[in-house]
Simulated scan of single mutants.
Amino acid sequence: MELAPHLHRIGNDIVAAHLIVADDGITLVDAGLPGHYRDVVRELGVLGRPLSDVKGIVLTHGDSDHIGFAERLRSELGIPVFIGAEDADRAKGAKPPATPKDPRRIGPTVRFFAYAIAKGALRIPPLRDVTPVHDGDVLPLPGSPEVIAMPGHSPGSIAVHVPAVRAVFVGDELTTRHVLTGVSGPQPAPFTDDQAGSSASIERLAGLDVEWVIPGHGAPWRGDAPSLIAAYRAAEGHPTAH
């Protein structure tokens, strides 16, 4: 689905990945779940672009519902996979630490896990090779994505700032639809290692000149970063608000 010229979405508000489409190739931000592979191929077909036009995958972090089909593209086509250095082991299969119990409601929780299983969540291959990235790196990929370290959800969580499409991809550092409660709007994400650290990292978005703030779960936020941060802070104080 096209969000804007050169900016396309794969998946939905439950789990999403994104394409940066440029004349010199395509950058994939996150790789969702294994079943999203077909969705990527379908979207590229609509664009008239071959899968080989994908020049790199940038992972916002190493959780299973973000690495999805990344190893398939890496092993079959040699497409490099970039990830925050502190999350490299997680992407390669290291077990993440237990996180505090998150609030949940039966309906949204069942829908999340049912969708994930239908999209292959029980058979996600870990990455065998990744390229670690660090705060401030500008990657040699279409759109020249910039790395912003945002530890909290995981130690190596990053935001991916792409000035060419006036967007920043924030992974699970925040969500606009809580997959376990169904609550909408900018708010802390579930399954977070260090919520205090995640909350502090949100401030790193404040100075960005963007039109889109795009999480891995929930609707893309169309608006400036300060207004998103304000909505997030309000949700921190009222965690059950809709």
Rank of each mutant, 00 (worst) to 15 (best):
E2C: 10
L3H: 06
H6C: 03
N12F: 10
D13R: 11
I14H: 11
A17T: 04
I20Y: 02
D23V: 01
G25Q: 02
I26A: 00
L28T: 09
D30W: 07
A31D: 15
A31Y: 07
G32Q: 07
G32E: 10
L33N: 03
D39E: 15
L47S: 12
V54S: 04
K55Y: 05
K55F: 03
I57M: 05
H61I: 02
H61T: 03
H61R: 02
F69H: 01
F69S: 05
R72F: 07
L73T: 02
R74D: 09
L77D: 14
G84P: 06
G84R: 06
E86P: 15
D87P: 13
D89N: 13
K92Q: 15
K95T: 15
T99K: 00
K101C: 00
D102Y: 04
R104K: 03
P108L: 07
T109D: 05
R111K: 13
F113G: 02
F113M: 11
A116F: 01
A121W: 03
R123I: 03
I124H: 08
G136P: 11
G136R: 12
V138Q: 14
V138T: 14
P140G: 00
P145M: 03
P145I: 09
E146Y: 10
E146V: 07
V147E: 11
I148Q: 13
A149P: 12
M150N: 15
P155Y: 13
S157H: 15
I158E: 13
I158P: 05
A159F: 00
A159R: 11
V160K: 15
V162A: 10
V165C: 02
A167L: 12
A167I: 03
D172V: 00
R177G: 01
H178K: 02
H178V: 06
L180E: 02
V183R: 11
A189F: 10
P190E: 05
D194E: 07
G197M: 05
S198Q: 12
A200N: 01
E203V: 13
R204K: 14
A206T: 15
G207Y: 09
L208E: 12
V210M: 04
E211Q: 10
A219M: 04
W221F: 10
G223Q: 02
G223E: 00
P226D: 06
P226Q: 12
P226S: 14
S227N: 05
R233N: 09
A234Q: 13
A235N: 13
G237C: 04
H238P: 09
A241R: 11
H242V: 08
H242M: 15
